[in-house]
Design a protein around this nucleic acid. Structure first.
Lengths: 233, 233
DNA sequence: CAGATCACTGATGTATGCAATACTCGCCTC
DNA sequence: GAGGCGAGTATTGCATACATCAGTGATCTG
């Protein structure tokens, strides 16, 4: 009997078991704590009902991700990315996603292409119904599917890291609200996919980079350092 | 009195004070421990004369860098990159350095260009005298100078991370031994610098990527998974 | 003799106590 | 009244003890 039960609930990693790191990251990205807010270890320990040790591990990681700042012997504080850093990160995003598009074009026919196609179709439908929430989700999925389909695990790791730093969700949600950008975005996705299908690695990379650059400009135009206050430091 | 002393030895970060993390990383990259070797926390703690806690922090970081593998409740082991991962990392290196070359070309005249020029001159001299050690050092410097000159701190961070994973020094030293590759390499550096000077961002990126690709092929041709044994896992 | 079970071992995972120190606020001095 | 000084406080940094559990080998059973 026990063998069966272990076989069933053996791998709880797949479905909804957020790591402490993810929980703390979610708290920081949640926006409740403004940049400069102190994040006491003891408070977090009590909040998540664990000891300071695992909290410290998570905070150390978040520091390496650039989300918080640990000032030795002083405290840890939520860190707001400067406008310059956001520009830098979008430059990297452009490079990563361009690289992914190029690699994917070289791979030839893979099932992920169908996933991307379905994504585009659904995006059109969501745009029709002005379902911005669903649309933002689909944009997110499109980019991630592209990255994963490039079949380069190290790229995925670096991309994940970058996206954690960008706190992407908050930004893309803002952008998507703007009418007009939606259709342009889907069209660009469509063009990229066509070039990938045509095995035009160079064109796919180039188009994807232009697409990311355009969306970055959108985000950056109506976002002045995201909260006004510049550096904490 | 105390004020003066604190002013003097306040910032020991600049000159030669290797962090525990760097020390442990050096130990792992030193090659003494073959892939699969266990890295007991208590052993490292005794070796470096600290407690397990800071050792754990360093190991956690090295795990995220991909140098070691922490199997929960089992132990931590040195992890050898598979050939596939090395290929993936070189693809990223190509992307990063290409991006750097392109960004630098857009920056216009900056003092770093002179540093690169001097590097090329010195490389020629080192090649003349068959000083492979110095030559390898200069190659390393050239690439790092390029990355830093791109003026994108996030790029520097990701590049650093990638280089830590690649354990670059061991590989590039092997490559540089090969006669013939030296002159080709310097010539490629020269071409890249010329294109940067000409503000040809596209050409600079393209040339740099080809250069990295060529050197990657060199490294990969005479390196079969670096040690024979494939995955530990 | 083959197979499974179970206690043992060694490792990591966590909790907690103590040490060190940057910042703060009140007090003292000029 | 202004400025510096010093004790207090809150925080992180480190050390250590305990809990937990994967792997292993001996033992027991069929």
């Amino acid at each position: 009997m026990q063998q069966l039960s272990t076989l069933v609930d053996d791998d709880p990693r797949d479905l909804a078991e957020p790591t402490l790191l993810e929980k703390v990251r979610g708290l920081v990205l949640g926006g409740e704590y403004l940049p400069g807010s102190p994040l006491s270890e003891v408070f977090l320990a009590q909040h998540f009902e664990v000891s300071r040790t695992p909290i410290r591990e998570a905070l150390k990681q978040l520091q390496h991700e650039g989300l918080i700042e640990i000032r030795p012997k002083v405290g840890t504080f939520v860190r707001e990315a400067t406008r310059r850093e956001i520009v830098e990160m979008f430059q990297l995003k452009e490079s990563f996603e361009g690289m992914a598009a190029g690699l994917l074009a070289r791979r030839g026919m893979v099932p992920e292409l169908d996933v991307l196609q379905r994504n585009i179709n659904e995006s059109d439908a969501a745009a029709e119904h002005d379902d911005t929430a669903r649309y933002a989700e689909l944009v997110h999925e499109f980019h991630w599917t592209l990255i994963r389909a490039a079949d380069n695990t190290k790229l995925v790791e670096h991309y994940q890291r970058l996206m954690n730093q960008l706190a992407y969700h908050r930004l893309v949600l803002k952008t998507v609200e703007r009418p007009g950008r939606i259709h342009a975005s889907t069209d660009e996705h469509r063009t990229v996919l066509e070039m990938i299908r045509a095995k035009d690695a160079f064109g796919a990379e180039s188009t994807m980079r232009n697409h990311v650059y355009a969306s970055a400009r959108e985000v950056l135009t109506d976002t002045r350092t995201t909260h006004g206050q510049d550096q904490v430091h």
